[in-house]
Simulated assay, not measured.
Amino acid sequence: MSTLGRGAPSAVALSVAALVTGMVSLQCGATFAKSLFPAVGAAGTSALRVGFSALILIAVWRPWRRSLPAREAGWIALYGAALGLMNLLFYLALARLPLGPAVAIEFAGPLAVALIASRRRSDFLWIGLAILGLLLLLPIATTDGLDLVGVALDLGAALAWALYILFGQRAGRVDGGQAVSLGMFTAALVVAPFGVAEAGASLLAPGILLSGLAVAIMSSALPYSLEMTALRRLDRKSFGVLMSLEPAVAACAGLVLLGERISAVQWLAIGLVIAASVGITVGSRRSAPQAAILET
């Protein structure tokens, strides 16, 4: 019997639609964010996105209503710092890379966490596919290779994503809304100095502020809400398999909205990363990738 969902077929279909809509919103938000780079830079755009996301989450969850255990404050601080670095490094990479390959490379982070959690011998196949996909995206041996600095920044974002998952599992032991809102606030504190250093007073221009708010809504508030809705009806394994399609969604968004054409080799690389993500999600008992809902 299929494990696709935990409810009626119509409810499951709506959950799948919500999840796909969330992915499209997230990647459209990334394309819109990229259009802000010429005005305030990648760091400035990241500061706007994370800052407005923090304000939205704090307004929704009001974390001050509950006391925070001192022993958990450190984990939330680490979780927020990893989240901030993940966003900052990804946007810096996105300034140099097409959206699809950038998202595929960053998937190395949750894939690594999932593989560490798994104990199946067959997972070495997925390791091999993921490594092959990443190698095909490197600027070696092909004339359509990606920018080396961009790839390095993206791999840094992948590492931060992995740390975000691990620290988030610890931080999530307290109230989830409190953890995510305080974590995002910490992320904003981490990213803000870089954004101010790059863009300065330009960040306060009314048009820029409105654009930053739109990026935050499209890339954070809306997709996170839709993903949480989907999780109510989809089992974790099905959720992870569907989320594995995100690099392809990103590539299509980059093509349609930014005119970013990628080579056949890069499409193949994205496909290999997706296959590895699906394989490890299906094979993992703990479904580790699902801990990475708050992605870039």
Rank of each mutant, 00 (worst) to 15 (best):
T3F: 08
G5R: 03
G5Y: 06
R6G: 00
A8Q: 11
S10D: 04
A11V: 05
V12L: 04
V12A: 08
V20R: 00
V20L: 15
T21D: 05
M23F: 05
S25N: 04
S25P: 02
S25A: 15
S35Q: 12
S46T: 12
L48V: 08
L48T: 03
G51Q: 06
F52T: 00
S53M: 05
I56K: 03
A59F: 14
V60M: 14
V60C: 11
W64T: 01
R65S: 11
L68C: 08
A70L: 14
E72S: 13
E72Q: 13
A77Q: 00
L78F: 14
G84M: 13
M86C: 08
N87M: 11
L88M: 10
L88C: 09
A93M: 10
A95K: 08
G100T: 01
G100I: 10
A102S: 13
V103Y: 07
F107T: 00
A108P: 01
G109L: 11
P110D: 08
L115Y: 13
I116K: 00
R119Q: 11
R120P: 05
R121I: 09
R121D: 05
S122L: 14
L125D: 02
I127H: 02
G128F: 03
A130E: 01
L132M: 10
G133K: 03
T142R: 14
T143E: 13
D147A: 09
L148M: 09
V149E: 11
L155T: 02
L159R: 00
W161I: 04
A162F: 08
F167M: 05
A171H: 08
G172Q: 07
D175K: 00
V180N: 05
L182Q: 07
F185S: 14
A187H: 07
A188E: 05
A188N: 03
L189N: 01
V190K: 03
A192R: 04
A192M: 15
A192I: 07
P193M: 09
G195W: 09
G195I: 10
V196R: 03
E198F: 10
G200D: 12
G200E: 09
G200I: 06
L204T: 08
A205N: 13
G207N: 11
S211A: 15
S211P: 00
G212D: 04
A214L: 15
V215H: 09
I217C: 09
M218V: 06
L226G: 04
E227F: 15
M228I: 11
T229R: 14
K237L: 08
L245G: 13
A250G: 12
L255R: 07
L257F: 15
G259S: 08
A264D: 02
Q266G: 02
L268Q: 00
A269M: 02
V273L: 13
A276V: 04
S277A: 14
V278F: 07
I280T: 09
G283K: 07
R285Y: 03
R285V: 08
A291Q: 11
A291W: 13
A292F: 15
I293T: 12
